[in-house]
Amino acid sequence: MLTNEHIKQRLKEKFAEQVTGFEEPYGMLTFEAPKELNLKVLNFLYDDEELRFRFLTTLGGVHYPANKGRELAVVYHLHNLADNVRIRFKVFTDINLPDIYTATGLFSAANWMERETYDFYGFNFVGHPNLKRILNVEEMDYFPMRKEFPLEDQSRVDKDDEMFGRGGSAGFGTDTREEDNRNSVTAESEKDDAPG
């Protein structure tokens, strides 16, 4: 029986202090390694006769803008199908230098997953055979899943759209935007209440 504790031990034996951040959220062993080591760790997990993490369940990016120097993370979910154990492995990188070794040599499945992650977060998967956008248009020049591209604020009032209830005609032609969004919403709704 392969326990989380045992996997942790094996990783520590092999990589000593370089694998860090061991956690077990909801029972899944989670840890991280420096980005230079991602392939070494993946290879070790794959080849080791005991660990046998040979199924790449999924791979995705996360953006933490407040984490200076390690803003972007690649998260691998690996599965040992023989012992039915899953683990989560994270690699952090600087957003200004998002180079990470590709896992395509190990998992054919990583090909499109990495393309998708590149497409949305801008990782540069070093050694990827065909690193280009996959879901977005090729002309796109930004990485839309990064946090600096917030979705539309539901309370914005600078759009006049009678049909869809954003401000309506009350504010048409005048700039009702104020510094605080909340204030402008109140101002807007007051105007809506006024007759005519």
Binding site: T57, T58, G60, V62, V75, H77, S108, A109, W112
Partner: peptide, 25 residues
């Protein structure tokens, strides 16, 4: 794959979509 930072919405939500993964084969 859901990451929550304690807010009202997910911080990050990733779907593992089987079709996407096996179409590359």
């Amino acid at each position: 794959y859901l990451i929550s930072d304690g807010g009202r919405t997910p911080y990050r939500l990733h779907f593992r979509r089987p079709c996407f993964i096996y179409y590359q084969a």
